[in-house]
Amino acid sequence: MTEYVSTTPGLFPLPDWAKDDLSDLKGHQKHDLVSGDEGEEITAAYEDAREEVIGVQQDAGLDRVVEGQLRWDDMLAHPLAVHDAVETRGIVRYYDNNNFYREPVVGGDLGFSGDVASELEAASELTDGDLQAVLPGPYSLADLATDEHYGDEAEFLSAIADFLTGEVDAFPEHETLFLLEPSLVENAPEDGLDKRASEAIDRVASATDADVVVQPYWGALEEKVYAHLLDADVDAVGFDFVASREDNVYNLQEYGATDDVSLGLADGQNTLVEDPEAIRDRVDWVYEQIPVTDFETVYLTTNTETFYLPYGKFEEKLAVLAEAADLAEVKAA
């Protein structure tokens, strides 16, 4: 029988109190932040916020709990933005929306960092075997960065994959790993690079024994990109059914799917809160469109990160996902 798992791609909004407190603290510690030292007060605020968002997920009844990525001011670029071999420069628009990040410029070898692993270590102490790790996929991270060291597109992508592999290897025990790959949609790799992107994802996925989900979003993958992605040794590929229904259905119909699947059915950017029954009905709609419906695991998630939502709406979305997964389990039984 199919298992329905409620989860999120992470990158949560800060609790309102933390947003205010951290804004004040960062305003007083600009020099420390530039030097990479967040200071005890900022660190403590993030720790309290992490504990809160983990508690919110647990109270909602989500099957997988993420750390929240509340420190990721640079969004998916964060793992590079805090790396010693990387210089952050001007402000760059984050894909095609009104959020921005500091451009990470790689100027040296990307050795081990451990920044994300330390966040997950803290989260693992607050969870109970249901921890889900979140990382940018290697293609998206390379796409968001600027290379001034490796000098070759393929070599740079390979270096990013090696870097992420080393980071994953240091993670505490986790049930699932979500690799977020919006650049596969937003800036699709050309011939040749599409295969290398899949190989890079495969390399990162091999660093963990956890189930690995590759989650593209903001649309559907081009056919060749999707076909190559299926060659990677991952457990599930995700689909953004909020932004693109027909093209995602087409890929599933023409090329099939992995044994597991991740369905982005709740809108991670819209404040309208869906009914759990509506999400369950959308699962049925997807099943009606495709020939393969005997997935081992179906992840029910928002289509994008929820960073854009007001905190109260974010909390409501979590509860909807958890209830929708329960409804789907009952119907399947």
Rank of each mutant, 00 (worst) to 15 (best):
D202H: 12
L300T: 02
E246K: 09
N270I: 03
F241V: 01
V249S: 03
T271E: 15
T301E: 13
A200R: 03
L221H: 05
W218V: 08
Q253S: 12
V242P: 00
D231Y: 08
V298R: 05
E246S: 13
A205Q: 11
F241N: 00
E288Q: 11
A232C: 05
A200T: 08
N270P: 04
A266K: 07
R203T: 13
R245E: 11
R196Y: 10
S206V: 02
D275H: 15
D211H: 08
Y287P: 00
V292N: 11
R282I: 05
D294F: 09
Y287I: 00
G268P: 09
T293R: 10
R280N: 14
P216D: 09
L272K: 14
D275T: 15
V292Y: 14
L230W: 06
Y250E: 09
F241S: 01
N251D: 02
V234A: 04
A220K: 01
D247R: 13
W285F: 11
A266N: 11
V242Q: 01
V283M: 07
A207W: 09
D247G: 00
F241A: 00
A220G: 01
D294W: 07
E288K: 04
N251I: 03
E254C: 01
S262Q: 13
Y255C: 01
E288D: 15
D294G: 11
Q215N: 08
V237S: 02
I201H: 06
D202G: 10
S262P: 03
D209F: 06
S262C: 13
A266D: 12
E199R: 15
A227D: 14
D294I: 09
A232Y: 01
T304D: 10
T208V: 09
W218I: 10
I201S: 07
D211T: 12
Q215T: 05
E254I: 01
E254V: 05
D240I: 06
W218F: 15
D211N: 11
D275Y: 15
A257R: 06
G264H: 08
K224E: 15
Q253D: 13
T271D: 15
F295G: 03
Y250C: 00
A257W: 06
D294V: 05
W218R: 13
L272T: 15
V286G: 06
V249H: 05
S244D: 13
V204G: 03
T301P: 02
V213P: 01
V283N: 09
A278S: 15
T208H: 09
L265F: 11
Y226C: 04
E274R: 11
D202L: 11
V242G: 00
I201R: 08
A207S: 13
H228I: 00
D284M: 08
G268Y: 10
A205G: 10
E246T: 09
V242S: 00
T302I: 08
E199V: 12
D202R: 12
D281G: 13
